[in-house]
């Protein structure tokens, strides 16, 4: 008999941060595969660059901070950041752009705040915003999805564009890249071309599918399905995605119904750009999100409003990163003012 000392409770559900993070990573797989299918090797190369740089910079800072390296590297959180970045950055983004975004995300936005659990902002979104503001030209290096073009850019061509900027013979960067459907619509609306004519335009029309952007709608659909799986597994809280998607649906529908020629439909908003990725994988990052039940409702709504405003009236094609970071700022306030009534409180008041 040993009479070991311990503190209650002596039993545990034995859940772990590690398993949560890896389940999130697994949930990212289908959507990522779809993104690779539609946009080619670029996404995969981005993913590898981001993963390597994220892990290396995390290890570097942990070493500087004298923290256990192995435990933190294997928790999976840096890989999630890398994956989100790879999905958000354009497929033909030069390697250094991905590297800068990754370094910023991990070193500045995550580790300088104290590492996992202490970051105020979503690291991937901070990394994205930094390169978005600093390198607007490179951030437009999107390609047309498979379906709009017959085949991918070959692996060697993609590789050389990303690493040396060398384009295939007799082509300019404009001939291999193409704006995203969201960007295209925005430009065309600004030129006072109505949505219907853009959707059936001889060039741009190829970018659109029945309800979302070509390719994008399938990627979004897969992220939606994985998101629902994560909710079922209780890996993420359902409140943020539900409030975000419902609010976005409501606002987009309100404007689309009032003027369908210049405001894209709610379905287009839900199934284009990074909507579903944001709803289930970015906004639900528990560390930078609000943590009270009521706060999570407000947090999701706030993101939806900001996303819609930036998409519709702002200067950037998609507003998810800015919306997330802006709402991250409000989190301490939200958490403070949305404390649930504790047991026995409701009876007194």
């Amino acid at each position: 008999m040993l009479f070991r000392k311990a503190s209650s409770p002596f039993i545990s559900a034995q859940a772990s941060v590690h398993s949560i993070m890896y389940q999130v990573l697994y949930a990212l797989i289908p959507g990522t595969l779809a993104a690779i299918y539609f946009f080619g090797w670029g996404i995969l190369i981005n993913l590898l660059i981001a993963a390597i740089i994220c892990l290396l910079s995390e290890a570097f800072v942990l070493k500087l901070r004298n923290r256990p390296i192995k435990a933190s590297l294997t928790d999976g959180s840096a890989l999630i950041t890398a994956c989100l970045l790879a999905l958000a950055l354009p497929p033909l983004a030069p390697w250094w752009l991905t590297a800068i975004a990754s370094i910023f995300a991990i070193v500045i936005a995550k580790q300088l705040y104290g590492g996992l659990g202490f970051n105020v902002f979503n690291p991937a979104m901070v990394g994205y915003i930094v390169v978005m503001i600093s390198f607007p030209r490179e951030m437009t290096f999107w390609v047309a999805p498979l379906g709009a073009v017959d085949h991918w850019l070959s692996f060697s061509d993609t590789f050389s564009i990303i690493f040396s900027g060398a384009l295939p013979d007799q082509s300019s960067i404009d001939s291999v890249t193409m704006a995203t459907p969201m960007d295209t619509l925005k430009t065309q609306i600004a030129l006072e071309n109505d949505i219907e004519s853009t959707r059936h335009h001889k060039v741009y029309g190829a970018l659109f599918n029945n309800f979302g952007g070509k390719g994008w709608q399938w990627i979004n659909l897969l992220f939606l399905l994985s998101g629902l799986w994560m909710i079922k597994q209780k890996i993420i809280d359902w409140r943020i995605p539900v409030s975000f998607l419902l609010t976005l649906l409501f606002i987009a529908n309100f404007f689309a119904v009032s003027d369908y020629a210049s405001y894209p439909s709610a379905l287009f908003h839900l199934f284009s750009g990074g909507t579903m990725l944001c709803a289930f994988f970015i906004a639900t990052d528990p560390i930078s999100a609000s943590t009270t039940p009521k706060g999570r409702w407000i947090y999701g709504m706030g993101i939806a409003v900001l996303v819609y405003c930036i998409r519709t009236w702002g200067g950037y094609p998609d507003g998810i990163a800015f919306a997330i970071v802006l709402m991250n700022i409000t989190v301490p306030l939200l958490d403070y003012y949305t404390q649930p009534k504790t047991y026995g409180k409701s009876e007194v008041e």
Binding site: A6, G115, G117, F118, K234
Partner: peptide, 14 residues
């Protein structure tokens, strides 16, 4: 008894 090293709180809200 895991009193030594635990992971940081990730505010998951469970």
């Amino acid at each position: 008894a895991n009193t030594e090293a635990h992971m940081p709180c990730i505010r998951c809200g469970r």
